[in-house]
Design a protein around this nucleic acid. Structure first.
Lengths: 110, 110
DNA sequence: TGAACATATGAACAATTGCTGATATGTTCA
DNA sequence: TGAACATATCAGCAATTGTTCATATGTTCA
């Protein structure tokens, strides 16, 4: 009993802080939607404006805009304005890495 | 215009197949919940039974069981029975890798 | 300035999700 | 076998999420 409690306590202490785990889950949540995954893959090929992404995914402008906002808040994409148009691109190379490992996992479990 | 259409078409073709992208999103969705992230981190330290996980996370048995089912379906954890008890552990090393890269991403965007 | 265009945002709705409490399944051992 | 224990599953609820439609914001150029 005593030993058991001790073990539980040890494990609890070894967990990263609550807030960090929460943030980590938040990042993955952003990857956890196929529309956003598609956007990320499209941007992996090339910088694109909102309208183009919409055409590639065959979805309306508003839906894309909403998802881009979420991706941007998560720092997965960045944007630059060129006149009326806003171009989006991947923010850092972690994005590609995460996609790659996810794919690897899928491959292996086949 | 013609060029534009062509570019869109190219991008569409370069995207991985719909189903693959969907599956990829499904995997990340599993990582996208803090309860499951906690379970994965706990299991990263040591193989654990359902009751112990419940104590570490301070959550009831039913909730843990449900999440373990989801993790198992996604092949992120595996289980072995020892009498009445069922021990869970991480299924493959991708899990740890994915957690690590996620954390890296969080670090850098601070 | 104001019309045209590109994008962002807000409200609303349907669908999905995580948790709870109750109960079912499976295992041990007296 | 049956009581005790460990885990799994089910139904139901509250909360969250993705999309749509309507509208707002921001930019260009005549």
């Amino acid at each position: 009993m005593k030993q058991e409690k001790k073990k539980i306590n040890q494990l609890q202490k070894q967990l990263p802080p609550e807030e960090e785990l929460y943030d980590l889950a938040e990042v993955f949540k952003v990857f956890g939607d196929s529309t956003r995954i598609k956007i990320l893959y499209a941007l992996y090929q090339s910088e694109l404006c909102v309208a183009d992404i919409g055409e590639v995914l065959e979805m309306n402008q508003s839906a894309i805009s909403h998802q881009l906002r979420i991706l941007k808040d998560a720092k997965l994409v960045k944007s630059r304005r060129a006149g009326k148009t806003i171009f989006y691109s991947l923010d850092d190379d972690h994005v590609a890495k995460i996609l790659a490992i996810g794919t690897e996992h899928l491959e292996e479990r086949k």
